[in-house]
Amino acid sequence: MIVAEPKPIKELLEMVQDFNKILVIGCKGCVTVCNVGGLKEVGILASTLKIARKKDGREIEVGEHVLERQCDPEYIDEVKDIIDDYDAVISLACGVGPQFLSERYPSARIFPGVNTKFMGGAVEHGVWSERCAGCGQCVIHYFGGLCPIARCSKSLMNGPCGGSSHGKCEISDDVDCIWDIIVRKMMAQGRLDELVKFRPPKSWTTARDGGPRKMVREELVI
Protein backbone atom coordinates (compact mmCIF):
# COMPACT_ATOMS: atom_id res chain seq x y z
CA MET A 1 0.00 0.00 0.00
CA ILE A 2 0.90 3.66 -0.09
CA VAL A 3 1.96 4.64 3.41
CA ALA A 4 1.34 8.13 4.72
CA GLU A 5 1.58 9.97 8.01
CA PRO A 6 -0.62 12.74 9.39
CA LYS A 7 0.56 16.28 8.92
CA PRO A 8 1.06 18.08 12.26
CA ILE A 9 -2.16 19.75 13.42
CA LYS A 10 -0.31 23.05 13.71
CA GLU A 11 0.66 22.95 10.04
CA LEU A 12 -2.92 22.12 9.04
CA LEU A 13 -4.36 24.88 11.25
CA GLU A 14 -2.00 27.35 9.61
CA MET A 15 -2.95 26.14 6.13
CA VAL A 16 -6.64 26.73 6.73
CA GLN A 17 -6.45 29.71 9.06
CA ASP A 18 -8.28 31.97 6.61
CA PHE A 19 -11.16 29.56 6.09
CA ASN A 20 -14.18 28.94 8.28
CA LYS A 21 -16.01 26.18 6.41
CA ILE A 22 -13.84 23.17 5.82
CA LEU A 23 -14.56 19.82 4.30
CA VAL A 24 -12.34 16.95 5.41
CA ILE A 25 -12.34 14.18 2.84
CA GLY A 26 -10.98 10.74 3.68
CA CYS A 27 -10.25 7.76 1.49
CA LYS A 28 -11.10 4.11 2.07
CA GLY A 29 -7.99 2.91 0.24
CA CYS A 30 -4.41 2.66 1.49
CA VAL A 31 -4.71 5.53 3.96
CA THR A 32 -7.51 3.74 5.77
CA VAL A 33 -5.34 0.65 6.07
CA CYS A 34 -2.42 2.64 7.46
CA ASN A 35 -4.73 4.53 9.84
CA VAL A 36 -4.17 7.99 8.53
CA GLY A 37 -7.08 8.96 6.31
CA GLY A 38 -10.08 6.71 6.90
CA LEU A 39 -13.42 7.32 8.60
CA LYS A 40 -11.85 7.40 12.08
CA GLU A 41 -9.10 9.81 11.18
CA VAL A 42 -11.49 12.13 9.36
CA GLY A 43 -13.53 12.30 12.58
CA ILE A 44 -10.47 12.90 14.73
CA LEU A 45 -9.17 15.69 12.50
CA ALA A 46 -12.60 17.33 12.27
CA SER A 47 -12.97 17.24 16.04
CA THR A 48 -9.44 18.52 16.63
CA LEU A 49 -9.96 21.42 14.22
CA LYS A 50 -13.16 22.34 16.04
CA ILE A 51 -11.53 22.16 19.47
CA ALA A 52 -8.57 24.24 18.34
CA ARG A 53 -10.72 26.88 16.71
CA LYS A 54 -13.22 27.09 19.58
CA LYS A 55 -10.30 27.50 21.94
CA ASP A 56 -9.21 30.55 19.96
CA GLY A 57 -12.77 31.86 19.87
CA ARG A 58 -13.14 31.35 16.14
CA GLU A 59 -16.04 29.19 15.13
CA ILE A 60 -15.48 26.75 12.33
CA GLU A 61 -17.76 24.47 10.41
CA VAL A 62 -16.21 21.16 9.50
CA GLY A 63 -17.83 18.70 7.14
CA GLU A 64 -16.75 15.08 7.01
CA HIS A 65 -16.84 12.81 4.00
CA VAL A 66 -15.09 9.58 3.13
CA LEU A 67 -14.73 8.45 -0.46
CA GLU A 68 -14.34 4.88 -1.65
CA ARG A 69 -11.07 5.99 -3.26
CA GLN A 70 -9.63 9.36 -4.19
CA CYS A 71 -7.68 7.97 -7.12
CA ASP A 72 -10.68 7.31 -9.36
CA PRO A 73 -12.68 10.11 -11.00
CA GLU A 74 -16.00 8.36 -10.46
CA TYR A 75 -15.59 8.55 -6.70
CA ILE A 76 -14.25 12.10 -6.80
CA ASP A 77 -17.53 13.06 -8.49
CA GLU A 78 -19.40 12.06 -5.35
CA VAL A 79 -18.70 15.36 -3.58
CA LYS A 80 -19.76 17.56 -6.49
CA ASP A 81 -22.95 18.69 -4.78
CA ILE A 82 -21.40 19.54 -1.44
CA ILE A 83 -17.92 20.86 -2.22
CA ASP A 84 -19.16 24.36 -3.08
CA ASP A 85 -20.62 24.67 0.42
CA TYR A 86 -17.10 24.84 1.80
CA ASP A 87 -14.26 27.39 1.62
CA ALA A 88 -11.55 24.77 1.71
CA VAL A 89 -10.97 21.03 1.50
CA ILE A 90 -8.45 18.96 3.42
CA SER A 91 -7.81 15.65 1.71
CA LEU A 92 -6.55 12.84 3.91
CA ALA A 93 -5.59 10.68 0.92
CA CYS A 94 -2.07 10.10 -0.41
CA GLY A 95 -0.72 12.76 -2.76
CA VAL A 96 -2.94 11.44 -5.53
CA GLY A 97 -6.21 12.34 -3.82
CA PRO A 98 -5.81 16.10 -3.38
CA GLN A 99 -4.60 16.32 -6.98
CA PHE A 100 -7.59 14.45 -8.37
CA LEU A 101 -9.78 16.80 -6.32
CA SER A 102 -7.85 19.85 -7.55
CA GLU A 103 -8.22 18.74 -11.17
CA ARG A 104 -11.92 17.90 -10.88
CA TYR A 105 -12.88 21.03 -8.92
CA PRO A 106 -10.81 23.90 -10.38
CA SER A 107 -12.31 26.60 -8.18
CA ALA A 108 -11.93 24.73 -4.89
CA ARG A 109 -9.04 25.28 -2.45
CA ILE A 110 -7.59 21.85 -1.77
CA PHE A 111 -5.04 21.13 0.98
CA PRO A 112 -3.07 17.94 1.67
CA GLY A 113 -3.76 16.58 5.14
CA VAL A 114 -1.08 13.90 5.14
CA ASN A 115 2.52 13.45 4.11
CA THR A 116 2.80 10.58 1.67
CA LYS A 117 5.85 8.51 2.63
CA PHE A 118 6.41 5.39 0.58
CA MET A 119 5.13 2.15 -0.86
CA GLY A 120 5.42 -0.47 1.81
CA GLY A 121 3.59 -2.58 4.31
CA ALA A 122 2.98 -3.07 8.01
CA VAL A 123 5.83 -5.14 9.44
CA GLU A 124 4.06 -5.11 12.78
CA HIS A 125 1.05 -3.32 14.20
CA GLY A 126 1.74 0.39 13.97
CA VAL A 127 5.05 -0.03 12.13
CA TRP A 128 5.39 0.36 8.37
CA SER A 129 8.43 -0.18 6.21
CA GLU A 130 9.32 0.69 2.62
CA ARG A 131 9.48 -2.07 0.05
CA CYS A 132 9.13 -0.64 -3.44
CA ALA A 133 10.55 2.39 -5.24
CA GLY A 134 8.29 2.06 -8.26
CA CYS A 135 11.23 1.95 -10.66
CA GLY A 136 9.06 0.46 -13.39
CA GLN A 137 11.25 -2.57 -14.09
CA CYS A 138 11.19 -5.10 -11.29
CA VAL A 139 14.43 -6.99 -10.72
CA ILE A 140 13.99 -8.44 -7.23
CA HIS A 141 14.36 -12.02 -8.45
CA TYR A 142 18.10 -11.34 -8.91
CA PHE A 143 18.35 -10.40 -5.26
CA GLY A 144 16.68 -13.19 -3.36
CA GLY A 145 13.27 -11.60 -3.87
CA LEU A 146 14.33 -8.44 -2.03
CA CYS A 147 14.68 -4.97 -3.51
CA PRO A 148 18.01 -3.14 -3.18
CA ILE A 149 16.68 -0.19 -5.21
CA ALA A 150 14.12 0.68 -2.54
CA ARG A 151 15.81 -0.78 0.50
CA CYS A 152 19.53 -0.04 0.12
CA SER A 153 20.29 3.58 1.06
CA LYS A 154 22.50 3.80 -2.01
CA SER A 155 20.33 1.61 -4.28
CA LEU A 156 23.36 -0.58 -4.90
CA MET A 157 22.91 -3.30 -7.50
CA ASN A 158 26.21 -4.91 -6.47
CA GLY A 159 26.27 -4.54 -2.70
CA PRO A 160 26.84 -4.61 0.16
CA CYS A 161 28.95 -1.48 0.64
CA GLY A 162 31.60 -1.16 3.33
CA GLY A 163 29.19 0.58 5.67
CA SER A 164 27.22 -2.54 6.51
CA SER A 165 27.64 -3.24 10.19
CA HIS A 166 26.01 -5.99 12.26
CA GLY A 167 23.24 -6.26 9.69
CA LYS A 168 22.48 -2.56 9.89
CA CYS A 169 22.89 0.20 7.34
CA GLU A 170 25.51 2.90 7.88
CA ILE A 171 22.83 5.59 7.89
CA SER A 172 21.04 4.29 11.01
CA ASP A 173 20.77 1.36 13.37
CA ASP A 174 17.04 1.49 12.65
CA VAL A 175 17.63 0.55 9.03
CA ASP A 176 18.40 -3.05 8.14
CA CYS A 177 21.17 -3.53 5.59
CA ILE A 178 19.14 -5.18 2.86
CA TRP A 179 22.33 -6.41 1.22
CA ASP A 180 23.27 -8.23 4.40
CA ILE A 181 19.90 -9.98 4.21
CA ILE A 182 20.23 -10.64 0.46
CA VAL A 183 23.72 -12.11 0.81
CA ARG A 184 22.87 -14.32 3.76
CA LYS A 185 19.71 -15.57 2.11
CA MET A 186 21.30 -16.31 -1.25
CA MET A 187 24.34 -17.97 0.32
CA ALA A 188 21.99 -20.14 2.39
CA GLN A 189 20.20 -21.04 -0.85
CA GLY A 190 23.53 -21.97 -2.42
CA ARG A 191 23.29 -19.16 -4.98
CA LEU A 192 26.75 -17.60 -4.49
CA ASP A 193 27.35 -17.88 -8.25
CA GLU A 194 24.44 -15.53 -8.94
CA LEU A 195 25.53 -13.20 -6.19
CA VAL A 196 29.00 -12.69 -7.65
CA LYS A 197 27.58 -12.02 -11.09
CA PHE A 198 28.09 -8.41 -12.16
CA ARG A 199 24.82 -6.50 -12.43
CA PRO A 200 25.16 -3.80 -15.09
CA PRO A 201 23.82 -0.26 -14.68
CA LYS A 202 20.07 -0.13 -14.54
CA SER A 203 18.03 1.78 -17.04
CA TRP A 204 16.05 4.39 -15.16
CA THR A 205 13.91 5.23 -18.19
CA THR A 206 10.97 3.41 -16.62
CA ALA A 207 11.46 5.16 -13.28
CA ARG A 208 10.53 8.74 -12.38
CA ASP A 209 13.83 9.78 -14.00
CA GLY A 210 12.25 9.09 -17.37
CA GLY A 211 9.73 11.85 -16.73
CA PRO A 212 6.20 11.76 -15.31
CA ARG A 213 4.72 8.37 -16.09
CA LYS A 214 1.51 7.33 -17.73
CA MET A 215 0.22 3.88 -18.58
CA VAL A 216 -2.33 2.99 -21.22
CA ARG A 217 -3.81 -0.46 -21.50
CA GLU A 218 -5.78 -0.50 -24.72
CA GLU A 219 -7.91 -3.49 -23.75
CA LEU A 220 -9.29 -1.51 -20.84
CA VAL A 221 -9.82 1.81 -22.53
CA ILE A 222 -13.51 2.43 -23.20
Binding site: K154, S155, M157, G159, F198, P200, P201
Partner: peptide, 8 residues
Protein backbone atom coordinates in the same frame (compact mmCIF):
# COMPACT_ATOMS: atom_id res chain seq x y z
CA UNK B 1 22.24 10.29 -7.24
CA UNK B 2 23.52 6.70 -7.10
CA UNK B 3 22.64 6.28 -10.77
CA UNK B 4 25.29 3.56 -10.85
CA UNK B 5 27.19 1.87 -8.01
CA UNK B 6 30.91 1.50 -7.38
CA UNK B 7 31.03 -1.87 -9.13
CA UNK B 8 29.42 -0.39 -12.21
Amino acid sequence: VFDIDSMQ
